[in-house]
Design a protein around this nucleic acid. Sequence first.
DNA 1: CGACGACGTGACGGTTGCGTTTCGACGTTC
DNA 2: GAACGTCGAAACGCAACCGTCACGTCGTCG
Lengths: 190, 190
Amino acid sequence: MLRGDITAAIRNAVMNELAEVGYGRLSIEAVARRAGVGKTAVYRRWSNKLEMVLEIVSGVAERSVPMPDTGSFASDLQLLMFVVSKALQHRIASQIIPDLMAEAARNPQIAETLQRALRTHQLTVGEQIVGQAVKRGELPAGADPELAVDLMVGPLYWRLAVSRTPIGDDYVETLAAAVMAALRGSPPAH
Amino acid sequence: MLRGDITAAIRNAVMNELAEVGYGRLSIEAVARRAGVGKTAVYRRWSNKLEMVLEIVSGVAERSVPMPDTGSFASDLQLLMFVVSKALQHRIASQIIPDLMAEAARNPQIAETLQRALRTHQLTVGEQIVGQAVKRGELPAGADPELAVDLMVGPLYWRLAVSRTPIGDDYVETLAAAVMAALRGSPPAH
DNA sequence: CGACGACGTGACGGTTGCGTTTCGACGTTC
DNA sequence: GAACGTCGAAACGCAACCGTCACGTCGTCG
């Protein structure tokens, strides 16, 4: 019964408003104003700010990281890091993600949602490609998927979402090579 | 003329308030309330929220990362990462830093302050220890200090401040070894 | 055609914070 | 002991936003 175009306008307004002012200062009034709709239309769909943001953001976030299976660990790694780097260079995403991450540190509901939408999936992907790599003999048997994820995502996140220094054309490639070396050369965990 | 104990109480209140509600929702009223102080006392010292937060935070942040010179790159690296990991596991810091980082993405003044207080110093340290390592022959000649910093700080930041998964006793050690391998094994930049 | 429901508008009372001002109390300084 | 400046408390007018409600419009379904 709710009109789809209006819902879409609100979703869009929420994302932009989140990017501009952040979760802490996001107000329903501003969202409605920006979407060109009445507050009523918003409250008819979600009962408060938290619920609204969580539903909208997790909807967007879930279609994110792919599960690569290119046949070699090196290219799995490169593909994965390339996708992540693209995502983190998206204007809106690079504003919203750090903001929600910070907010998650003090709001368990946000934390749980992001956990489910991002981190869990990442870890699954990490286990998958590391597992395959070990099977193929490309990595030593004790290779730790959790460490692998930290090494893959950490530098990209730091550089693109936190430090925000622009990267060169071959930065991702260089970084992927470095991660490769780290995982191959590091002793098995424990 | 301003009473020092009151200034200290306000500084303390700002840090705690920042950790609890974040910059976006931080209000001067709440700071004064928490410090047990009149709003007048706050406005007598700083003229608005931004100025107050910047002055206080950068004061705290500047005495942060040391310049290690242990004689070997491996132990420089380990020391540095240990210090960073300790800092990022501090309850207050691990709440405030991601919050301000996110805020920096939309407020140039915050960005510039953090840049000066953290990133620039980090890069200097990075250049220093990588430079020494190259001189000693521990790293190939083309080793890139910027990449090194991303590899050192990124995973720690991601794991401790973003993902917030607890780390084991030897995690930092393992990570340092991985970074070591990455820097030694990676091709020279360009 | 008539009922229904979602729509935008605008207003509601209540809360919170802004930055400023006034007040009386207290402690220094001279 | 008088003058000064900081202190906390409280109030100021103003603005934003909360969540709700009443209204009139419009499109759709039956």
